[in-house]
Each structure stands twice: as C-alpha cells, then as structure tokens.
Simulated scan of single mutants.
Amino acid sequence: MSGLSVGKRLGDAVFEAAYLSLVTLFIAFSVIPIVVAVVLSFDARGFIGPFPPTQFSLRWYESFMADSYYHDGLVTSLIVATVATLVSTVAGTLAAIGLSRASFRGRGALQAALLSPLVVPNVVLGFGMLIFASRLGIIDGMTRLIMGHILITFPYVMRTTAASLVGIKASYYEAALSLGAKPWKALAQVTLPLARTGIFAGAVFGFVTSFDDVGVSLFLTDAFTFTLPVAILAQMRANLDLTIAALSVIFIVATVLLIVLLDRLAGLDAIVGRGVYGR
C-alpha cells in the first residue's frame, strides 16, 4: 500500500472522528439543557440548589396551575400568536405570489423592505411600533401586540412561500387558465396546493416566533395585557423559582403530543406536503 493511500485513509479517519465529535457535541449542547430543566422541574426544594436535586415533588407544577399571572400571559400569547399568524399567512402568501410574478422597477427594494424585520433587531421594531401606535392613538395593549407580531411574523411566511414558488413552473398556472379556470380558481387549486409546504412552514415559524417573542412585546404590553414570555421575564426579576422549569416541560410535552396527534390523524406528509418534486 502506498504512502499516499495510507495518508488519505488516515485523513479520512481524522475527518470522520472530528465530524462525529462535532455532531455529538451539538446534540449534547441541545439536549442537556432540556434534561436539566426536566429534572429541576421536579425539584422539591424551595430554592435553586446544586444539581441534581435530592428530593422530588410536583410543587412547581402546582405553582404554575395556581398562578393566574402565568395563565393570563398564556391566554394572551395564544390569542396574539394565532391572530398574527393567520393574518401574516394570508398577507405573506399573497405578497410572495405577487412579487414572484411581477416585474417592475423597485421590485427588489420592495422585497427587501418587506423582509427587513428579519434583520432589524426586535427592540428597534418594538420601539418603532410603539411610537407608530401612539401616533395613531392606539392605546389598547392587545391591538398593539397583534400589530407588532404581524410585523415580525409576516417575513417568515413570505420568505418560505417565495422559496417554495421557485420550484413551481408558471406553465402549471397558465395551463389552468387555458383550460378555462378563472385566475382566483387557478391560484387556489394549482399554485397554493403546490406551495403549501412553504406556506405551512412559514406559518409554523411565524407562530413560534410570535409566541416566543420578548423584544417587541416588552414595548407593546400594558398593565393588563402581557404575553407569557413577558410574564416569565417579570417573574424572573421579581422572584426566580423553578415554576419556569415546570412551564418549559409542559410546553415540550404539549409540542410532542401535538406532532404525534397530527401524524396519527392526518399524517405530517399530508399536512405539510412533500414539495413539488415529491408529489
């Protein structure tokens, strides 16, 4: 065996070992915090002490169930995230379809402006939306939150929908028109079904972004209307305890159960779609 072959195999082995090490570290970095949160959520101590805990109980889950402050924040987050995602999904999908077919001067600038919330810090967006709402005389916390969350969720739907439209040939839509379909019907029965993967992915990203947002929500809440992340942040500053760990575990379990339920009832492929080339 030549020295070149031995060196090549040695190099491949070193690369494979380094690759596996990086993957292992990434998985550990992602999973260990979740494991720690799950274990601490059952800690019986009334303070955050050394890990692992020596006694276990459900006191922090009972604390969450009895705390109306968290409940109010949860309800507000669900309402805001749902409304913002629905509006953003419709508006973002239409914007993506319109820009993908249009050809005019300034198209790139318009697209960049619509996607700018992806790169502008949320603190800046929140402050700007607060000033904008004040100028319009909007003082209702729920209305301001929905406006701000539409702003930050819209780009996700638009971007993922635009990406999915790249793989859809314009001839499909044109063929439907040539066969007598009206434009809105061709859009609803041809373009949207083919682009549903991007639309659904954008809606999911948008909902998660809205539900998890702190930067924008901090500026738009009021004394009676606040989201769950804002409530958690306020409690962390006032009285840090492990109720937050219990809350995290509840949402992890709820997410897993939702995915399993969707897969059992309809199948994730049927809901999300397999893309243009997997149909």
Rank of each mutant, 00 (worst) to 15 (best):
S116C: 04
I271C: 09
V208M: 11
S171D: 10
I232N: 14
P33R: 12
V214K: 10
P155D: 00
F42V: 05
R144D: 10
A133K: 07
I79W: 14
V80L: 12
E174I: 00
I152V: 05
D241E: 05
F47R: 07
Y19W: 07
P183R: 06
A231Y: 09
S88P: 05
A234V: 06
V38T: 09
L179H: 15
T93N: 12
P193R: 14
D241M: 09
G11R: 14
P193T: 08
F42Q: 10
I138N: 10
S164L: 02
F207H: 01
V276R: 14
G267K: 14
G198P: 00
T24E: 00
Q55V: 11
T255S: 14
Y156F: 15
I97E: 02
V214I: 11
G11W: 15
G198A: 05
F29Y: 14
S41Q: 04
P53Q: 07
L4H: 13
H149P: 01
T197I: 01
Y69W: 12
F47P: 01
G108I: 04
G7V: 04
I32E: 12
S178D: 15
T191S: 12
V123A: 12
L4Y: 06
M1Y: 10
I252C: 01
Y156Q: 03
S68M: 09
E174G: 00
G215L: 13
S77N: 11
A188T: 09
G273Y: 07
R237T: 06
V39H: 10
R135Q: 14
S21K: 04
A13L: 08
F219C: 08
A163E: 10
L187I: 05
D43L: 06
H149F: 03
L118R: 00
I48L: 10
V39G: 01
N239W: 14
R144M: 11
I152F: 00
I271W: 14
L40A: 04
V249I: 01
P50E: 11
A109S: 13
V120T: 01
R279E: 02
F226E: 15
P52S: 12
A95T: 04
V35F: 15
A37E: 10
I48D: 02
T76L: 04
I27R: 03
S100M: 01
T255Q: 11
R45N: 04
F64R: 10
L118K: 00
P50Y: 04
V216S: 05
L265P: 00
E174W: 04
L110Q: 10
L218D: 02
P155H: 08
I250W: 08
M147Y: 09
G126T: 05
R237P: 02
L151C: 04
W184T: 09
A245F: 11
L247G: 09
E16I: 01
V214T: 06
T54G: 12
A109V: 08
Y61K: 08
F224W: 04
D72N: 15
I32A: 12
G267Q: 13
D212I: 00
D12M: 13
T197Q: 15
P52A: 15
A102I: 00
F15G: 03
F224M: 06
L130C: 08
S217H: 09
D12W: 11
R105E: 05
A163P: 04
V124Q: 02
A266W: 02
P229R: 07
D222T: 15
I146M: 03
D212P: 01
I97D: 02
G108C: 03
V123M: 12
A28L: 13
V39T: 08
S164N: 14
L218C: 05
